[in-house]
């Protein structure tokens, strides 16, 4: 019984941590190595922020995509300000019950990492990057429906 209580506590504690913590990267290159590293996975990487209204609007489409399209993995890269991580980002993810993988990128060296994502990216968000077999496909736009997003993704990965 004693063990059970300890275990139950440990379990509760760990799941709570899982729900509340997301990986934070100060450099895009580190994020690439840690999160976008599997050659056999097709990634749909969405750059967004809680302060970006069109991003928040299209977020459910990415959630649905992650759930319904088994050929891809959605990664939501938040560009929220570092000091709003706990005050804004975490409550937002909890409230919206976001299931896709979320990471926070705080790399301010835009001149280096934006061109590494795509040479033509002006820096406006939302923006979406698809990585398949090491090839990159980038688009700087908002998807206004799930169908539009799914169609676009399928046109690239199939």
């Amino acid at each position: 019984m004693k063990y059970f209580v300890v275990l139950a506590f440990a379990f509760l504690f760990s799941s709570q941590i899982q729900a509340q913590k997301i990986a934070v990267f100060d450099h895009y290159s580190d994020l690439e190595k840690a999160v976008l590293n599997d050659e056999n996975t097709t990634y749909v990487v969405n750059f967004w922020a809680t302060w970006c209204a069109p991003c928040v609007k299209e977020l459910p489409h990415f959630e649905q995509l992650n759930f319904e399209n088994k050929k891809i993995k959605v990664v939501l890269v938040s560009l929220d300000f570092k000091n709003q991580y706990e005050a804004k980002l975490l409550p937002f993810l909890k409230k919206k019950a976001v299931k896709s993988e979320v990471v926070l990128l705080t790399d301010k060296d835009y001149n280096t990492w934006l061109p590494a994502v795509d040479k033509d990216w002006s820096g406006s968000i939302p923006a979406t990057l698809i990585i398949k077999n090491g090839k990159k496909f980038f688009v700087e736009k908002m998807f206004s429906s799930y169908e539009e997003l799914n169609q676009y993704v399928n046109s690239i990965i199939n």
Binding site: W51, C52, P54, L79, Y110, N111, L114, P115, W121, S122, G123, S124, I125, P126, E140, M142
Partner: peptide
């Protein structure tokens, strides 16, 4: 130079 910003 490049930078993040809000879309127009």
């Amino acid at each position: 130079t490049k930078a993040i910003g809000c879309s127009i």
